[in-house]
Write a protein that binds this DNA or RNA. Structure first.
Lengths: 150, 150
DNA sequence: AGATTTGTCTTACATACTAAGATACTTATC
DNA sequence: GATAAGTATCTTAGTATGTAAGACAAATCT
């Protein structure tokens, strides 16, 4: 009993520390590109989701359209993304990540990506499957709590 | 093989999503207190570590002394912390969280704390122990990567 | 005692956000 | 097809939060 409770309490504490450390990493990673955290997040959205309009970017980042204009300005200035008019709807602006330029950059995620891959490689398939399920649940749970706060 | 690789790839993706969701939660949680993310983090540091000087707070938050002055100003203004001169060293300012005032607030962490506790209660003791070890490793690993970027 | 160091605050400035509205374009209605 | 309404982005003004540099008070070290 006390054993389990102890583990659960420790896990709660570790979760909070993990969140803090993760935030700090993102900040440092962005800084080594000369960008802010939001800009980095935008780049990530563009790389995952492909070219998108400024409006899509705004909803993905929970920003106003004005803020997105600034984000895209900075990314374009750094040569990490391109902005071009949409042929179909000329009000729209399509923003695309410049994958070649990003690959030529400091590549800050390589190190952490490799480190986690070797950590995961040392785990059993059962443990990996458990982690996937657990992480999915914790994400869903956190999303619910975000909605509860809104 | 492909099975394992698939799990590992999925885990990497989930890790990134988890980081994003966590950051979003922190932002919303801070906002429901009428604070910024940094202020909330400062409050957390004060609750965990007890009363501290402005300088200690600055290093814990990776902020300049000037920024900390602003953080403490805001916390005091909201009645969530107190600032008083250190009797021993009168240059110092001791900042303490006002636990009663915080408890009387919206208590945004209650929900997520409960949710995780029930999730963890459904796990076996072995799974809990594994999670503790894994999280500790991932924190250490992330901290190493932060140093590598500095 | 005098010089240096330390801890906090002040000031000036930079950055990044929101809010509100301007502009340009598209879609719907008559 | 003209007019009205809606949509997507950008602009501008104001606010918040950070850094950098230095002032000031208090402690520490010859």
């Amino acid at each position: 009993m006390s054993d389990r409770d102890d583990l659960i309490a420790r896990l709660a504490d570790l979760g909070a520390r993990s969140a803090t450390v993760t935030a700090l990493f993102q900040q440092k990673a962005a800084a080594s590109y000369g960008l802010g955290v939001t800009d980095m997040k935008a780049l990530d959205v563009l790389m995952r989701g492909g070219p998108q309009t400024a409006g899509q970017l705004a909803t993905a980042l929970s920003l106003t359209s004005g803020a997105v204009t600034g984000v895209v300005d900075r990314l374009v200035k750094h040569g990490l993304a391109t902005r071009e008019a949409d042929a179909g709807d000329r009000r729209r602006v399509l923003v695309a990540a410049d994958l070649a330029a990003i690959a030529a950059g400091p590549n800050v995620y390589q190190g952490i990506s490799d480190a986690f891959r070797t950590l995961h490689a040392s785990l059993s398939t059962e443990q990996l499957a458990f982690l996937v399920g657990y992480t999915e649940q914790s994400i869903a749970l956190t999303e619910q709590q975000i909605d509860a706060l809104s």
